[in-house]
Computed example of a mutant assay.
Amino acid sequence: MLRLKRTLLFSAITLVFTAATIFVTGTPVTKANTDVKPKAIYKVETDKKLVALTFDISWGNKVPEPVLEVLKKQQVKKATFFLSGPWTLRHPEIAKQIKDMGYEIGNHGNLHKDFSNYPDSWIREQVQLSEKSIHQVTGVKTKLIRTPNGDFNPRVIGCLNGMGYKVIQWNTDSLDWKNPGVQNIVTRVTKRVVPGDIILMHASDSSKQIVEALPQILDNLRKQGYQFVTVSELLSNASVSSKVQ
């Protein structure tokens, strides 16, 4: 009898909890939606030879404009730039040039610190500050974000998704910021690239060899049959292949 009472009590509590959840969220509790995990986007699954060239900028004014000149000379009309808030305010003319050239602009945060070391309130504040700076200078309301240092965990991604952002990582890393040599940068990108790839490069002054490496990368990728698209265009072409760290 006691066991029956306990069972009935547990069932009643479960029903109350479920009803409350539906009332608050409008979504019934199911195993499917409780098991959903936040994910970052590394590439997309596609048979099309499409790649997204992405450039992070958080420091300096010596490299960004030469990178833009290479893209213009090579007639690359599609790329995605992730800009930090402080850099955008310090170099508004370059940020506007990126926008005027038709390139996609994403958010790269405000302070260049690992998001996973801070609470959600700090993350939201930092992203909003950067978002405001980018919008003030370029008029763009960012919807894509690449976290500083590419740092995140499921909690961070969940927080950013809750702000309406898609978290963009990369599948091919040029390692250009390490300045390993022009040919090493070219080889890393051109040998690792796959259809649907998101390629990480930098247009910050810390990347001292990207301007020389970039023309070779672009020529090689074109010879392999690749077309350049923005991250958003890439996402619209296929289902997303994602993973969580």
Rank of each mutant, 00 (worst) to 15 (best):
R3V: 14
L4Y: 07
T7E: 11
L8F: 14
S11F: 13
T18W: 15
T21Y: 13
T21A: 14
I22D: 10
F23K: 13
V24C: 10
V24L: 15
V24S: 12
V24N: 07
T25Q: 14
G26V: 10
T27H: 12
T30C: 04
K31G: 14
A32Q: 10
A32M: 09
N33L: 06
T34V: 15
I41D: 02
V44N: 00
K48G: 03
L53K: 04
T54G: 02
F55A: 04
N61L: 12
E65K: 13
P66L: 11
P66T: 10
V70N: 02
K72A: 15
F81E: 00
F81M: 01
F82E: 00
P86M: 05
P86Y: 03
T88P: 01
L89K: 13
R90I: 02
R90H: 06
E93W: 13
I94L: 12
I98V: 12
I98Q: 00
K99D: 06
D100L: 11
G102F: 11
G102P: 02
G106M: 03
N110Y: 15
L111A: 10
H112I: 10
P119C: 09
P119W: 10
Q126K: 09
Q126Y: 02
Q128D: 09
L129Y: 08
S133W: 05
H135I: 00
G139L: 05
V140K: 03
K143H: 15
K143D: 07
L144M: 03
T147N: 01
N149H: 12
N149W: 13
G150F: 12
D151T: 06
F152H: 06
G158L: 05
C159Q: 04
C159A: 14
G162W: 09
G162C: 11
G162F: 11
G162A: 14
Y165Q: 02
K166R: 13
K166Y: 08
V167H: 07
I168A: 11
D173S: 11
D173N: 15
L175D: 09
D176N: 05
N179K: 03
N179Y: 05
G181C: 06
Q183L: 10
I185S: 03
R188F: 08
V189I: 14
T190E: 08
K191W: 04
V194G: 08
V194F: 07
G196R: 01
D197Q: 09
I199W: 03
I199S: 02
L200K: 08
S204N: 05
D205N: 09
Q209K: 09
I210T: 13
I210L: 07
P215C: 13
L221W: 01
R222T: 13
K223E: 07
G225H: 04
F228Q: 01
T230C: 04
S232T: 15
L235T: 04
A238N: 06
A238Q: 01
V240E: 12
